[in-house]
C-alpha cells in the first residue's frame, strides 16, 4: 500500500493566502486572567491614587492591544501552498502533507496547524502539529482518522497561534479542496479465484515456490506426492497438483459477480481489495471487473493503485 501512488486529483495544490479579514482573535483563558488582574490594579490605583499603578495598568493594557497586532501578524499573510495526501485503507490515518508559506517572507513562531472535525456534537480537535516558520516555509503533516472508504475531503485546515504572549489566540481557516482516497479495508476469507484456464495460461511462465498456496494445476511427471490435491482427485478424477508461489506469472480476473456468496456491498469491496493485494503480492497479473467499471489485466504498483482507487470510489457520487 506504500507503493500505491498518490492519485492525481488529491495532490492538486491549493493555494489560498489568508486574507486580512479572515483572522479571528479572542483572549485565551490567561488573557481573561490578565484582564482580571488589570482590573484589580486599576481599582488599587484609583483607591490609593497611585500614579505609577495607573501607569502600569495602562501599560499592560496597551501591551495587550499591541499583542493583538503581533498575534494577528503571526498568522496574517500565511499561505497554504499545497495540501496532498497519499491514499490509505479504512482505519488508517490519512497523512495530509501541508506546505505552509509565509507570503510576505516574514518568519512566524509557534503556529499550530489543526484539523477540526465537526460532528453534530461540538468541535473535536482531531490533530495538531506545531510549526515554527523560522525559514518562511514549513511542512506539516496532519494525520486524520478514516472511518469509511471513499474520498475523504480535508475541507478546512485551521491554523492558530497564541504567540507572543499567550493571552490572545488568533486563528484562521484554509478552505481546501484536497482530499484523500480511502481504500476499503482488505478483508474476506475467500481465496483468489484462480480458474483452470488462468492457470493454464500462466503455467509456462510461473516460477514455482513453496510459500503461498496459489491454486491448482494439472499433474506433471516429477511432481511431489505431497503436492497432489487429493480432494480434487476424489471429485473429478483429474490429477491436480497444489501450486505454491514465491512470485508467479499467473493471471486472474477479480470479478464483482463472482462474489455472489457475499451479499453485502462493502464486504464484497473489502474482499476484492484483499484479492487485489494478494494478487499483487504474488506477482499475478490481474484484472478487475465491477458493475460500472473494469480494469484490464496488468500488474504493478500503478495498476494496484488504479484498482484500489476504483474500489474506493465505487458508487461514490
Amino acid at each position: 500500500m506504500q507503493a500505491a501512488a498518490s492519485s492525481a486529483d488529491s495532490s492538486l495544490p491549493t493555494s489560498i493566502a489568508l486574507g486580512l479579514r479572515r483572522v479571528y482573535i479572542v483572549p485565551t483563558r490567561y488573557g481573561y486572567l490578565l484582564g482580571g488582574l488589570l482590573l484589580i490594579i486599576l481599582l488599587g490605583a484609583i483607591n490609593y491614587d497611585n500614579a505609577l499603578a495607573y501607569l502600569l495598568c495602562f501599560l499592560l493594557g496597551g501591551l495587550s492591544l499591541v499583542a493583538m497586532l503581533h498575534t494577528y501578524r503571526n498568522l496574517a499573510g500565511l499561505k497554504l501552498a499545497s495540501a496532498a495526501a497519499t491514499p490509505v485503507f479504512v482505519g488508517d490515518q490519512a497523512p495530509f502533507r501541508l506546505h505552509l508559506e509565509s507570503a510576505v517572507g516574514r518568519p512566524r513562531s509557534n503556529v499550530s496547524v489543526l484539523w477540526v472535525a465537526t460532528p453534530p456534537r461540538g468541535v473535536v480537535r482531531a490533530t495538531a502539529t506545531t510549526l515554527n516558520l523560522s525559514t518562511t516555509d514549513a511542512q506539516a503533516t496532519l494525520r486524520i482518522p478514516t472511518a469509511r472508504r471513499g474520498r475523504l475531503p480535508l475541507k478546512r485546515v485551521r491554523v492558530e497561534s497564541v504567540f507572543p504572549l499567550g493571552i490572545l489566540r488568533a486563528w484562521a481557516y484554509f478552505e481546501t479542496s484536497a482530499s484523500a482516497v480511502v481504500y476499503p479495508a482488505p478483508r474476506g476469507r475467500l481465496t483468489l479465484p484462480v480458474s483452470p484456464a488462468d492457470v493454464a495460461a500462466s503455467a509456462l511462465g510461473s516460477a514455482p515456490g513453496t510459500d503461498d498456496f496459489a491454486g491448482l494445476r494439472p499433474y506433471r511427471p516429477g511432481d511431489r506426492l505431497a503436492a497432489i490435491h487429493w480432494p480434487a482427485l476424489a471429485k473429478s478424477a483429474t490429477l491436480l497438483v497444489k501450486r505454491f508461489q514465491g512470485g508467479g506469472e499467473g493471471e486472474v480476473w477479480l470479478r464483482w459477480q463472482d462474489l455472489g456468496l457475499v451479499p453485502e456491498r462493502e464486504a464484497r469491496l473489502s474482499q476484492l481489495t484483499r484479492w487485489v493485494l494478494d494478487a499483487e503480492q504474488r506477482g499475478l497479473r490481474y484484472g478487475l471487473e465491477l458493475p460500472n467499471a473494469s480494469l484490464p489485466v496488468a500488474r504493478g504498483a500503478a495498476h494496484a493503485a488504479a484498482a484500489l482507487r476504483l474500489l474506493a470510489l465505487y458508487d461514490e457520487p
Binding site: 495607573y54 495602562f58 501599560l59 496597551g62 501591551l63 492591544l65 499591541v66
Partner: peptide, 17 residues
C-alpha cells in the same frame, strides 16, 4: 521583542493615563 512591544504600548499608556 518584549522591548519593542512595551515601546509600542507606551503611547497607548500615555493616552489612557
Amino acid at each position: 521583542l518584549a522591548g519593542t512591544m512595551v515601546a509600542q504600548a507606551t503611547p497607548l499608556m500615555i493616552a489612557a493615563f
